[in-house]
Simulated scan of single mutants.
Amino acid sequence: MATRVLKANKLKETPGERMFMGLIYTFLSIVLIIVLFPLLNILSSSFSSPQAVISGQVGLLPVDFSLEGYKAVFRNQNIVSGFMNSMYYTVAGTFINVLLTIMLAYPLSRKSFAGRGFIMGMLLVTMLFDGGLIPYYLVVKDLNLLDTRWAMILPTAVAVFQVIVARTFFQSTIPDEICEAAELDGSSDFRFIWSVVLPLSKPIIAVMTLMYAVGHWNAYFDAMIFLKNQDLVPLQIVLRNILITNTIDPSMLSNVDMMTAQSGLKDQLKYALIVVAIVPILILYPFVQKHFVKGVMIGSLKG
């Protein structure tokens, strides 16, 4: 009986609507193929033999399965050090980003906060006007952050766009009445944020965590400007040197006497390093995907 009711209530699609949806699915399928093909080719090349890579035999599946590229990646100390540095910048930087963004966005979402309009206006000014690269460098230099890990974290500690999205989320999700009820019960502001705001803010925290983490993991321009010590550079700088300047440490090559094998291993190494660089973000996304979609929609549309 319930099945009949559902079928009766189901709206019938017109031929035009079915054709439109068919065109959408066709277009999205084409986009998916365009995006997946280079990714699968890179993944397959990273697991293929150097000879197969250099001869162009690799397509969507590995040819002559080999792990030489990954062995070469983890045999080089610069890559291992860069990977660990990127992990540090991503974890520490994202924690500071999310913490400061919540501390700034939540007060701005409360109507009782005096001067919130002026502060929000000053934040928006920073989105419209940029001081430029030279003043940016001078500020970091005057703060004695050059060639330190903090140079990769503190200058980008807060993103105004994330503050706006988080503030909108707080305004639409946590009404003032809940805050007033907590105050009547004797709850302090910090206790209210910890016990009420944070548990209700999992979607927006997931959004901020993913966006900030991706930004830190892919960051390389600040490292090029502020870091000279090679022990502090992130993985993206190492990847850039290999992909653009084509500089590879000879210790990464297992047979330096065979030029053909060297050239093939260089190409295979590039593909393996690309896979190593994107895997952490691919692992992170499934854990926050459920809250990510909800947080983006609420934080950007409501308010």
Rank of each mutant, 00 (worst) to 15 (best):
M87R: 04
M1F: 12
A272E: 06
Q289G: 07
L43P: 08
M87L: 15
V31Y: 08
H216D: 01
M152Y: 00
L100C: 05
I174M: 10
L60M: 13
V5Q: 14
P203Q: 01
I274H: 07
T245M: 09
A277Y: 10
L123C: 00
N97M: 00
Y25G: 05
L301G: 01
A2I: 12
K290H: 12
R116G: 05
G132S: 03
Q171N: 03
G295T: 13
I24G: 14
G59A: 09
Q162P: 01
E13P: 01
L210F: 15
Q289C: 06
W150Y: 12
I237E: 00
E68S: 14
G59E: 08
I248S: 04
I242K: 14
S66H: 05
M258C: 11
F27I: 10
V207Y: 02
T90P: 06
P62V: 00
I96S: 05
N241Q: 15
Q230F: 11
S86L: 06
Y106N: 05
S81T: 15
G93N: 03
L108N: 03
F192A: 10
S45W: 03
F113K: 02
P155R: 04
Y106M: 04
V296W: 00
G299A: 07
P199Y: 02
N246Q: 14
V58I: 05
A151E: 00
F27Y: 08
S187K: 05
N85K: 02
N85W: 12
G117V: 02
N9P: 03
R75Y: 04
K228H: 13
G82P: 03
A277R: 06
S55F: 06
F47C: 08
D267N: 13
P286A: 08
S81I: 12
T168M: 04
K71P: 01
N85R: 03
G16C: 04
Y220I: 09
S48A: 03
L154K: 13
M103A: 12
V91E: 08
A52W: 01
D130K: 09
L227K: 02
M122G: 07
F20Y: 11
L124Q: 01
Y25A: 12
